[in-house]
Computed example of a mutant assay.
Amino acid sequence: MNQQEMTDRIARGQGFIAALDQSGGSTPKALRGYGVSDDSWSGDDEMFAQIHAMRSRIVESPCFGCGKVLGAILFEKTMDGDSGGKPVPDRLKERGIVPFLKVDKGLEDEANGVQMMKPMPDLESLLARAKAKGVFGTKMRSVIKRNDPAGIKAIVRQQFAEGARILTAGLVPIIEPEYDITAADRAEGEKILLEAIEEGLDALPAGQQVMLKLSIPAEAGLYSGLVDHPRVLRMVALSGGYSTDEACEKLSANPGMIASFSRGLLQDLRASQTDEEFDATLGAAIERIHAASMA
C-alpha cells in the first residue's frame, strides 16, 4: 500500500485498529495475561522476545488478515522486528493492515488532575526512521484523572503541539488524551475535553488531518460532532480497561467511532493454545470488535 492507499483505508475502511503497542512497563502484565509467567524470561531482551513472539503470532494468524483489521499500532521494538520473514511494517501492509508506531516515552507524575507525556527530544529521528520503514502514523498517550479544566486544556495543548511535529515529518498522529474510565466526574470532564479538542482541531492549518483516540464517552454520542470534522481522519476508541463485551457494548452506542483495543482484543489469547484454538479465539474477538465498530 502506498501513502494514498493507506489514507483511504484508514479514512473509509470498514474495520478497526489493533493496539499491539504494550511498552516496557506494561509488557510483563501483558505476558502474564497471555499465560507467560515472569520466571519464563530474564532481562529485557528475553522479555521483549516473548512479547514479540506473541505479536508475530497475532500478525500471522489467518484471521488477522481477513480485512476487518484496518491498522495496527506497534511498539518501537516490534516495528524493528520481523514477522513472516519480513519487516513487521511491510508484512502488515502485505496483509492489508496500516502500520502505526507508539512514540510517547511514558507519563509524568500526576499534576492538576492529569498525567502529561514525558518530553520526546529524539522524536524527529524516530519519526524519520518510522517513515523510512513505511509507517503511516503515530500514537501517543496521556491520561486525565479528574475534571480539572486547566489540566485538561494543558494535556490537549501538549498533544496537538507534539502532533504538529509528527505532521511535519509526514506522518499522521493519533491524538490520545485518555480519560480514566473510573473517574467519578468523567461525564462533566469529557465536555471540557471536547471543547479543548475542538479548539485544537480548529487551529490546525487547512489540509492537515489528525486521528483521535478517546475513551468511550460516559454520555453516548458526545463526540459525534468530531466524526465528520474536516481535520479528523478517523475517530477511534480505546477500551480503557473494559472487558471485550463491555467495550463493544459501549462502543456500539457511539456511531462513527471505531475500536482501537488492546485488552479487548487480546484478553482471551494464551501461549498454551494450539494454533487452531488461538486462531478461533482471536477470530471471535475480531468479529465482536468489528461488529461494534460498524454499528
Rank of each mutant, 00 (worst) to 15 (best):
G96D: 04
P99M: 06
F100T: 03
L101C: 05
L101T: 02
V103G: 03
V103L: 02
G106P: 03
L107T: 08
L107N: 08
L107Q: 10
N112K: 14
Q115M: 13
P119A: 04
E124N: 15
E124C: 00
G134E: 04
F136D: 06
F136M: 06
M140H: 15
R141H: 11
K153R: 15
K153V: 09
V156Q: 02
Q159S: 11
A161L: 10
E162C: 11
G163Q: 03
I166Y: 03
L167H: 01
T168M: 09
L171D: 02
V172H: 05
V172F: 02
I174Q: 01
I174V: 09
I175K: 04
E176Q: 08
P177V: 05
E178C: 10
Y179W: 13
T182D: 07
T182N: 09
D185P: 11
G189T: 11
G189I: 09
E190A: 10
E190W: 11
L193E: 04
E195A: 15
A196H: 05
A196L: 08
I197P: 04
E198V: 14
E199V: 14
L201C: 08
L201V: 12
D202V: 12
D202N: 15
A203M: 09
A203P: 09
P205C: 08
G207I: 07
Q209C: 12
V210N: 01
M211F: 06
K213M: 03
K213R: 07
S215I: 01
S215Q: 07
I216E: 02
G221C: 10
L226R: 06
L226T: 10
P230Q: 11
